[in-house]
Design a binder for these strands. Structure first.
Lengths: 169, 169
DNA sequence: GTCTATACCCGGATAGAC
DNA sequence: GTCTATCCGGGTATAGAC
């Protein structure tokens, strides 16, 4: 009952902190170990290698996004709001989870689908449009995270325009 | 008149080859130098550091995309086709050019705008929708490059659905 | 399950001779 | 403008003792 997380869980936690705090390059075995108060070689008793840590993080990220989307009220506006908010609150984790090749074997079944379902509901099960819509959200998020919009750009307005086009188009 | 490129130009060329051929990690000073038949320290007589090479590559990429978009026939369908085709033909360079923070000081003036203009034309100068549309294209490309669509997904259809929504929405 | 020690690899960048 | 020599840093991962 005591809230002592096991080592794997702790690895995920400190890895996430390092990633979000100091960027992807900070996610090294040495840093993770150091944050846990142990030495790097000891980590290999708990995870296979660095890649497994990233997989665990991606899994966690996808589960969180999926959970929030599933819990949100239906509709595209709500989807957009929740999706964007999560990404901006967890920029490095979002990047990691979406730009990694995603080995579908090791990812928990259904996690990917649960992130997709709300979108399908909002668009009358139109798979193609759902994918376009997902891509638009992903693109808007990435461009924002990467500082790709011109300085004065009204990003809110771009989201509104996109969502509205997807709904009424 | 002889087609002997100067060193900077040569650096861009071999860097591009390394990047596209072996991925981003292959873009090292040692590799670039080796491809040129010289030693790594010599590169510093021509470029300031590795970052400058990446900037040069980004500049080149943006100029190329902008050029192709400007030369294409007007309309959103054409934009989509050209944009996607360039990205798929130059995946690593596309990634580099779009996911780097883009230091606007050192980038040639107007390069960014020229890539944006065709989109504005196609959408009646609606800036917000143009940005949403750009984001959708970027998102579709990134998801495809990162192998993020499910195995059987019809990516062509997703593009069509997205473009059609953006036009008629 | 943690440690120390270590092997191995890689990278960016500079100094100074030629 | 190129070289050699070198410094400095970093990383993943394993072996074997405790």
């Amino acid at each position: 009952m005591t809230a002592r997380p096991d080592r794997r869980e702790q690895i995920v936690t400190v890895s996430r902190g390092l990633l979000e705090g100091d960027g992807r390059d900070a996610l090294t075995m040495r840093n993770v170990a150091s944050e846990m108060g142990i030495k790097a070689p000891s980590l290999y008793k708990h995870v296979k290698n660095r890649g497994e840590i990233e997989t665990l993080l991606s899994e966690r990220a996808l589960a969180e996004i999926g959970g929030e989307l599933a819990a949100a009220e239906p509709g595209l506006e709500s989807f957009a709001r929740v999706y964007r908010a999560w990404a901006l609150a967890n920029p490095e984790l979002y990047r990691l989870a979406t730009s990694t090749p995603l080995d579908r074997e090791s990812i928990t079944e259904g996690v990917e689908q649960s992130a997709e379902a709300p979108l399908l509901d909002a668009l009358g099960s139109d798979r193609d449009r759902a994918r376009a819509c997902w891509a638009m959200a992903h693109g808007l998020v990435m461009l924002e995270l990467d500082g790709r919009f011109p300085p004065g750009a009204d990003i809110d307005a771009a989201w509104r325009a996109g969502v509205s086009a997807m709904i009424s188009g």
